[in-house]
Write a protein that binds this DNA or RNA. Structure first.
Lengths: 209, 209
DNA sequence: GTCTATACTTCGATAGAC
DNA sequence: GTCTATCGAAGTATAGAC
């Protein structure tokens, strides 16, 4: 009895994730979001002030969940190398659980962060910070060679986001242009990223040039 | 004197690249494209049939130029490892010369290739094929360890696209959240991708686990 | 081939009743 | 808090003169 009938905002956010991921900020329709959430459009404007307000609320929520997930993943590891392995599978799992996260990130990058306010930027900044802290510790403990943490961060995050988000295009390509070739499955790709990340940071590997 | 006044289509394509990169397919305004190209809107519809026709013509053109560039880069190398180094700098240079290529690619991935027709897909497929051929040759010559070529392709392309396209967001972040930290410059990042690619493919590196 | 003017549609946002 | 009805802006596309 305490709650009157508050089911709307969560459903609206979920519907907004689908719509913004599918059509982008400009292409998204507030009408479609409301219909998908089984909520009246005026109700949507009542909870969130505008299309922009809804979009930003969604991004803050999504980035916050992602950061929580990465921190939890890292916490279960002991050595920095282990932690990076765990963070990598954590990222992959998060993207799979929030199928629209990747598309939203890709679009926001392409739009030069046009819709990000200071609060959303702060939530986003947590992600590279978590990874950078692990790498820095590895460098300090002489387990990793000294690399720029941001370079390593992009090298593990970007391929996974693009690979997972690019699956639909890849399937059309493999049918028409790479017929019959052995397809790359999800788990194998995640292991490749783990391996190449370890190799990139390995202190003892001989120089390659 | 020979040419009557044919300057339009190229200018339209260039203007469309800016507009589509900045606002996405749905967000792009045909009015703005026409104005930026200093061409009448009706003229634009005369040369290209529709907004979609213009968009596809732009993508085919851009992917075609990228493939030409990669082939030219690879041709100047001798060993597969050398060729990959050259391809990596070729990709980086291409993105810098066509500043909007990265954003358009990112958006198209996010939109699940919704605007790609068969012809555009064929032009896109050339890119992974060029890289895969180099890697396959390296594996055949026992210079590389056997990896899935597509995994390696994504691991070199994705970070560069995302890093270069993400520069605007990164600058806002570094100012507000990573104040004073040593910034990662472009050339250093390209070298990191070259290094990590070599390390990932290195046949003789000891196993890391 | 090039321009002006406009028809037609879609969509974000709000007013106002309940 | 929830709904219906609608306004006003913006945008794609075309008709038709030159």
């Amino acid at each position: 009895m305490p709650r009157p009938a508050r089911v709307s905002p969560e459903r609206i956010l979920a519907a907004a994730a689908v719509e913004f991921a599918a059509h982008g900020y400009a292409g998204a329709g507030v009408d479609r979001i409301a219909r998908r959430a089984r909520v009246n459009k005026a109700m949507l404007y009542y909870h969130f002030r505008s299309k922009q307000g809804l979009y930003r609320a969604l991004l803050r929520d999504t980035f916050g969940r992602a950061a929580d997930r990465l921190r939890a993943s890292a916490a279960t590891g002991t050595t920095p190398a282990e932690q990076l392995d765990l963070v990598i599978v954590g990222i992959a799992a998060f993207i799979q659980q929030h199928r629209h996260f990747a598309a939203i990130m890709l679009r926001e990058i392409a739009e030069r962060g046009a819709h990000l306010d200071a609060e959303t930027l702060a939530a986003l900044a947590a992600l590279p910070r978590i990874v950078a802290a692990i790498i820095q510790r590895g460098v300090d403990e002489k387990a990793f060679r000294p690399v720029h943490p941001l370079a390593a961060y992009f090298s593990m995050l970007a391929p996974m986001v693009m690979y997972l988000a690019g699956a639909p295009i890849r399937e059309r390509l493999s049918a028409e242009h790479f017929g019959g070739g052995p397809m790359l499955d999800h788990d194998a790709f995640v292991r490749y990223i783990q391996d190449s990340t370890r190799r990139a940071l390995d202190l003892h590997a001989r120089p390659t040039r």
